[in-house]
């Protein structure tokens, strides 16, 4: 008879239930992250940074030292920590707005500099915390609060291909993947590889996670899964884009 919830060891139980909405994908991404931290045994070394947007609600999520900063600025804050404390495993956690819009210059430049940090980005195709506005990742035709007639790519462009971009601008040693909350085990493995890449000091590591936002999508559980598993992959291909060459044994 099990008595305790099966949370990752690195989760901080005192702050659970967490602050995310019912069915929010952040919980799953952070579960995968927590499991990855546990399996690598790095809880004592992790510094976790989070953005504004819903991701900020993770500031007290883990039993790891954490800092919440402004919208888009998690990458530089975490970069600052890593540069000052190279012995720490530094994780920048953000949403699609923080990574691909207001903080895109930081993502691009941290990747280009091959900062030895791990960026984990939840892509839910909209701005969640501010109430469902268009994000860089909103799909063509997708209705949001600021594209009430559907996103028109002629006017607002096409969804940002984050991992593809990061993959294109990083050098050997970088790790880039796109996972999905529909496959938590795979997502955990991607995140684990990304963190391992930092542990080994190979280079920048980046994982985008396709994630759900039932609140702003106004979807029930069935439609939430359908959007994540059927609609989003049409634009966002799940898989590993870049991994360091296997070290010779």
């Amino acid at each position: 008879m099990s008595k305790a919830p099966n949370m990752p060891k690195s989760w901080r139980e005192e702050t659970k239930p967490h602050k995310f909405c019912p069915g929010c994908g952040h919980g799953l991404v952070l579960k995968a992250l927590g499991q990855a931290i546990d399996e690598l045994g790095i809880q004592d070394r992790v510094v976790f940074g989070c953005d504004i947007g819903c991701s900020l609600l993770s500031f007290d999520f883990f039993n790891v030292d954490s800092v919440q900063t402004h919208h888009g600025r998690t990458t530089p804050v975490v970069t600052g920590v890593k540069r000052a404390r190279p012995d720490r495993i530094c994780i920048a956690y953000m949403g699609d707005g923080g990574g691909y819009a207001i903080g895109s210059q930081h993502l691009v430049n941290a990747a280009a500099r091959n900062e030895k940090i791990t960026v984990i980005l939840a892509n839910n195709c909209n701005y969640g915390m501010t109430g469902g506005q268009m994000a860089p990742t909103s799909l063509p035709g997708m209705k949001t609060e600021t594209t009430p007639y559907g996103r028109d790519p002629e006017v607002t462009g096409y969804p940002t291909q984050g991992p593809e971009m990061v993959s294109a601008i990083t050098r050997e040693g970088a790790y880039v993947a796109r996972g999905t909350v529909a496959n938590v085990r795979q997502l955990k493995n991607y995140i684990k590889k990304a963190l391992q890449n930092q542990v080994e000091g190979n280079g920048f590591s980046f994982v985008e996670a396709l994630s759900g936002c039932p609140t702003n999508w106004s979807t029930n559980a069935k439609d939430t899964w359908a959007f994540i598993e059927e609609t989003m992959p049409k634009y966002f291909k799940v898989g590993e884009l870049k991994a360091p060459a296997k070290k010779e044994e």
Binding site: A4, P5, P17, H18, C24, V181, V184
Partner: peptide
Amino acid sequence: MVCPDCAIT
């Protein structure tokens, strides 16, 4: 596995 809140074991 898919519970975002770890409410099920």
